[in-house]
């Protein structure tokens, strides 16, 4: 096994480095026989399944974006009509702006909160292991289940309004998830809460690689806390920032289940996103062609922002 796991050059050098190798002096076994375990074609069934399930299915779905298929029966090819309809419909344009707002809002706030928590729990604090678990918990829990708990909290008869009433703010009590001004912010709170723990873990992994000696040296040189963070810590964890923000944007752009559970896209489309619109158009309203077109738009947006974000946060310009 060892021989096949090592890179070719390293495997070739191993006997020279070791001096005495078990089996040395015996007749050398021909390369590629006996111990070699595995052939490239063994991966073919897996490749075929991935190709069939991911790429062929996606390609067929993409094809329906150019049709008027309702989900059953026959269809006609309608060219770019579904895409034109998307950008003419204020609901879809609103869904696009909500999608971008929730994605960038949750990435920005979730990463700032995650970084602050990661810095706070990086060293020194004795209860850091318990606190890390608590902050990471929302990532492990089902988004759908926690969304229903949040829905109860934000309900008109829920704990938040009961608290406001108890402290004399009864006039501020409102159906948070059905308020046109507040609903999108309420959804953002839930998304930030659920994404903070994930960002925290990535930043903690990044911070583990920052040598304490460098920070100490900076402190001895007279750098204050902000200067140490800005000039020592942040550059060192730049790869972690890139990963956390990229994954956060992709996750934020395609967010679906918390919104369906919290608001269903309401009130009157105020929290509708591209993902919820894809579902409604394709599966609830029988406009499969329109839903497929929206899904393609969403995929293109995710791809564009992921690439832009990667380029902005890469640590080495030559990467």
């Amino acid at each position: 096994m060892t021989a096949t796991m090592q890179p070719e050059s390293e495997a070739a050098e191993a006997p020279r480095r070791g001096g005495h190798t078990p089996g040395a002096g015996q007749k050398t076994r021909p390369r590629g026989q006996g111990l070699q375990f595995g052939h490239w074609w063994w991966a073919l069934p897996g490749i075929a399944l991935v190709f069939a399930i991911h790429y062929v299915a996606t390609g067929i779905g993409g094809f329906f974006a150019f049709t008027n298929w309702t989900g059953i029966g026959s269809f006609k090819i309608t060219g770019w009509a579904n895409f034109e309809a998307i950008f003419k419909d204020p609901t879809k344009v609103g869904a696009l702006s909500n999608t971008l707002f929730l994605a960038f809002g949750s990435v920005l706030l979730g990463n700032i909160a995650g970084l602050v928590i990661a810095l706070g729990l990086n060293r020194v604090l004795k209860t850091r292991y318990i606190l890390r678990t608590l902050f990471f918990m929302p990532v492990v829990l089902s988004p759908l289940a926690t969304a229903y708990i949040w829905k109860y909290i934000f309900d008109f008869d829920g704990p938040l309004n009961a608290f406001l009433t108890a402290v004399g703010g009864a006039d501020q009590a409102k159906p948070w998830l059905a308020d046109p001004q507040w609903a999108i912010w309420t959804v953002l709170v839930v998304l930030v809460w659920s994404s903070t723990g994930f960002a925290m873990v990535i930043f903690m992994a990044g911070l583990a690689g920052v040598p304490a000696e460098v920070e100490e040296a900076a402190a001895i040189d007279g750098a204050n806390l902000w200067q140490r963070f800005r000039n020592v810590t942040l550059p060192a964890i730049r790869p972690a920032v890139a990963i956390a923000t990229t994954l956060g944007i992709v996750q934020g752009l395609r967010v679906f289940d918390p919104i369906m559970a919290l608001t269903g896209g309401g009130p009157a489309g105020a929290t509708e996103t591209l993902a919820t619109q894809v579902y409604k158009q394709a599966f609830a309203l029988g406009n499969f062609g329109g839903g497929a077109a929206l899904a393609l738009v969403l995929a293109a947006i995710i791809l564009i922002f992921a690439v832009i974000q990667q380029r902005l946060t890469r640590s080495n310009p030559e990467d």
């Binding site: 309401g266 609830a284 309203l285």
Partner: peptide, 21 residues
């Protein structure tokens, strides 16, 4: 003719109640 008409009515009435539409 399709479920989109009823959806427009139903979500629209929600918008009337919240003052959006």
């Amino acid at each position: 003719p399709n479920s989109a008409v009823y959806d427009a009515l139903a979500t629209g009435v929600q918008g009337i109640i919240t003052g959006q539409k």
